[in-house]
């Protein structure tokens, strides 16, 4: 549970939003697809998707987008957030 609480803190610190949903989807023996859904203070919603390699514990960027069907756009990745996540799983 502590790990999940830390993801919530990382989301607030680096993405400046509130963690709303966290999905861990196993896509094979050595790969986990992670979706971090968060809300910023202006009530915009974002999905940050990453892949966790279970062998070397590397977090690979997948996508970061504004979660809207009308305004679908790729947003820049946040390297500090990804590094913090990687450290968490190391």
């Amino acid at each position: 549970m502590e790990k999940f609480a830390r993801i919530s803190r990382i989301t607030t610190d680096y993405l400046h939003g509130t963690l709303h949903k966290l999905i861990f989807q196993y896509e094979g023996p050595n790969k986990v697809h992670i979706v971090v859904s968060y809300e910023d203070r202006n009530e915009y919603w974002f999905d940050y998707e990453l892949d966790l390699n279970m062998n070397n514990h590397h977090v690979d960027f997948n996508s970061h987008r504004l979660a809207s069907t009308l305004e679908k756009v790729q947003i820049s990745r946040d390297e500090h957030f990804e590094q913090a996540l990687q450290e968490l799983f190391d």
Binding site: D51, H58, V59, D60, N62, Q74, S76
Partner: peptide, 17 residues
């Protein structure tokens, strides 16, 4: 002033080594 990043959205292989 943020430097441009190299992202390859077609292949999810851009890890921070």
């Amino acid at each position: 002033d943020v430097k441009e990043e190299k992202v390859i959205p077609w292949k999810n292989s851009h890890a921070y080594q």
